[in-house]
């Protein structure tokens, strides 16, 4: 039997098991539900405001943008968290000690994080369909667009999560990366159209995946007329593909190198040192 295939299959099983575990403990359930409730409340409050220059509900415009953010956040932050935490607690070292264990581990993490992202997306999307008016969800095209944006978004952000997760050895230092991410969300036109921001800020936002994920999701779920109030007056699908594609390509080249370097350096002594540091913080 092919050993790589075995490890991939084990990784898929691993992802399924860990995804199922997220439904059986309060911490994970809270992590699903809390942001969802916050987003829904925000959208309800924004429901009666309108997008500048239109009479379209700002809440309905925010919803797809939030989905884009959920994808970016899910891919980047969840994987990053998992890698740093599980490096500290020894999960990775265990994976390293078994044949093809690292491959299985990584496949499992990708399945888990993708699954978690999908779930987070669905639990925001479904109630929104009942609360918000004006969404264009009647035709298959909307859902196909949503699907490719989701998929490309994950491919673009998961490798970044893997890279950052490998670089940070202490889970408590992740604020360093979380703050810029938060700033980026604020400037990426998620909660308010980017068109009202100064040009240089628009420029910065358009370098990163979050803006394009929001735009892609809006293109899927908003009526075509709403493209008029986007930058360039269009959904810019080609540009979305281009920018997310470049991030994905760069990530897929860089991530394996960084991951391999991180995995090579994992040892019991390193883990023990981290453990000691963590215990010192506790006491």
């Amino acid at each position: 039997m092919n050993t790589t295939l075995t490890a991939i299959r084990a990784g898929l099983a691993r992802g399924r098991i860990e995804l199922r575990q997220t439904f059986t403990n309060s911490q994970d359930l809270w992590n699903y539900l809390f942001p969802t409730v916050v987003f829904l409340v925000v959208m309800i409050f924004m429901r009666n405001a309108t997008v500048p220059g239109t009479n379209f509900s700002l809440g309905a415009r925010t919803m797809p943008s939030v989905l884009g953010m959920v994808v970016a956040f899910g891919g980047l932050v969840n994987l990053m968290m998992a890698l740093t935490v599980e490096r500290e607690d020894g999960t990775l070292l265990r994976a390293k000690a078994i044949p093809n264990g690292m491959l299985g581990y990584l496949v499992g993490k990708i399945v888990l994080v993708s699954g978690m992202t999908l779930i987070s997306l669905v639990i925001v999307l479904v109630p929104s369909l009942f609360i918000l008016d004006g969404l264009a969800v009647g035709d298959l095209g909307s859902w196909l667009t949503l699907a490719w944006v989701l998929l490309l978004g994950l491919v673009a952000t998961l490798p970044l999560g893997a890279v950052f997760g490998s670089l940070f050895s202490n889970p408590r230092n992740m604020g360093v990366i979380m703050l810029p991410v938060m700033g980026l969300i604020a400037t990426s036109g998620i909660f308010y159209p980017i068109t009202s921001f100064p040009g240089w800020l628009q420029g910065i936002a358009q370098v990163f995946p979050i803006y394009w994920l929001g735009l892609g999701m809006r293109s899927a779920l908003l009526p075509d007329g709403m493209a008029a109030v986007e930058l360039g007056g269009s959904w810019r699908h080609l540009e979305t593909l281009g920018v997310l594609g470049v991030w994905a390509a760069v990530g897929l080249v860089v991530a394996p190198i960084i991951l391999r370097r991180m995995a090579r350096r994992e040892s019991g002594a390193n883990m023990e040192a981290r453990r000691q540091r963590a215990l010192q913080r506790v006491t």
Binding site: I17, N25, G90, R94, G268, M271, E272
Partner: peptide
């Protein structure tokens, strides 16, 4: 290995079965 708190959500049999499959 010296373990600490990894795989805390897994069940004993489940983890051994999984790791064994490799």
């Amino acid at each position: 290995l010296q373990s600490w708190r990894d795989h805390g959500k897994w069940r004993v049999g489940e983890l051994l079965h999984h790791l064994g499959s490799y």
